[in-house]
């Protein structure tokens, strides 16, 4: 009887202390975890907006239900660009990305914020390629963090169908001529072996992003 009581008391005590400690850690880290989301958003905005614009947050009503869309305007002189988040289902996760377009729907920048695609395949939508070799790269100055996949969206129009080129190889391996040829047909290159993730993003652009831009423009 004493033994059983002891068992219960010890286990309960340990569980309570554990729960308390976890609650304490949670209280300490909660704000920072919440802030991380904003940080990711800020970094993405910085990446996709043209340099030297004044950024302001806005809301626009969406036609479906009573949803509202949060978007950011960037004003430079008489030109205004619009940035907003788009989410589409990829291969094994939802891909969250942010784009910035002109009023005519020409993309000035795209950044993938969150995804959980297959490592080595779809996850490469966020791949940053280092030009430097490991031997002379360590300890060097910081390299830019834009991924090659998102860079190729610059200048693509969301109002026209976006072509996916599966034969040209990946964008980072193309020369100037190849890149221009792609741009002429409003196209991007797919990630080798993961057209599903690639297509998820272009589909999102030509459906959701189009609707969003329309809602913003009123």
């Amino acid at each position: 009887m004493i033994d059983q009581l002891k068992m219960i008391v010890v286990l309960t005590l340990i569980s309570c202390v554990a729960a308390l400690l976890i609650a304490f850690t949670n209280a300490k880290t909660k704000d920072r975890i919440a802030r991380q989301r904003v940080v990711v958003q800020q970094e993405a905005l910085l990446q996709i907006m043209p340099a030297g614009v004044t950024v302001a947050e806005n809301k626009a009503p969406l036609s479906s239900a009573n949803d509202t869309l949060t978007y950011w305007t960037g004003v430079a002189g008489s030109d205004t660009v619009y940035a907003f988040k788009v989410a589409t289902r990829g291969y094994s996760s939802t891909i969250n990305y942010m784009i910035c377009t002109t009023a005519e729907g020409v993309i000035t920048g795209m950044a993938v914020m969150e995804q959980n695609e297959t490592p080595g395949l779809g996850a490469r939508v966020q791949e940053v390629l280092s030009k430097r070799l490991i031997w002379n790269g360590l300890g060097g100055p910081k390299e830019k963090t834009a991924s090659w996949f998102s860079e190729q969206f610059k200048g693509i129009s969301i109002n026209q169908p976006i072509a996916i080129d599966k034969t040209a190889g990946e964008w980072h391996g193309l020369d100037e001529k190849g890149r221009r040829r792609l741009k002429d047909k409003n196209g991007i290159t797919a990630i080798t072996g993961s057209t599903i993730s690639t297509r998820a993003i272009t589909n999102g652009l030509s459906t959701r992003a189009k609707t969003y831009l329309k809602a913003i423009r009123g």
Partner: peptide, 14 residues
């Protein structure tokens, strides 16, 4: 499990 949760929260934050 307690230590794992602590690690998890710290990783998420930092």
């Amino acid at each position: 499990a307690m230590f794992v949760t602590i690690v998890q929260l710290v990783l998420k934050a930092y």
